[in-house]
């Protein structure tokens, strides 16, 4: 699917800015967008835009060694809990498979996600934080 599709266009604040939908009633950060009802409490009172933090840690992960043609080998997928209580699934970038561990600190960085129909896609991936602290946000 290319970024010319309405589906990706609708999701720009989520995909390019990591804007979560914080439930006005219970505070749960709904991400990605899925209608107007809060997953946690069922409220339809509405959401407010919430800028999800770019720092977090790995909750679980897997190193995928067998992939269909056209995918990075290995691909490392992770579930990340951000500092402000959101949870995301992301692929990792610039991570060495043997270094990835549960509770590892990561930074969410804006990277390219391949292309479709010649149009490039962008989104967030998790990059390990080294002790030198190259996190600025």
């Amino acid at each position: 699917m290319s970024i010319a599709s309405p589906m990706l266009w609708r999701e720009i604040p989520q995909l390019y800015r990591l804007i979560g939908l914080k439930c006005k009633k219970c505070g749960y950060i709904n991400f990605p967008r899925m209608g107007s009802i809060c997953l946690k409490c069922g409220s339809s009172e509405g959401f407010e835009d919430h800028q999800i933090s770019r720092r977090g840690k790995v909750v679980t992960f897997t190193v995928e060694h067998v992939m269909p043609p056209g995918f990075e080998i290995p691909t490392i997928m992770a579930i990340v809990d951000t500092d402000d209580g959101a949870r995301l699934m992301v692929s990792m970038t610039q991570a060495k498979p043997e270094e990835v561990k549960i509770d590892m600190p990561v930074e969410l960085v804006f990277r390219r996600f391949g292309e479709a129909d010649g149009l490039l896609r962008y989104g967030f991936r998790a990059k390990p934080i080294k002790e030198s602290g190259d996190v600025k946000k």
Partner: peptide, 25 residues
Amino acid sequence: VARGMHPIYARGMTAPAVFAFYANR
């Protein structure tokens, strides 16, 4: 899964990966 699911949110996901997440945890 890898080709059919969301090209950004689920990029790189495969069916075994779902269960691998549970295995590691």
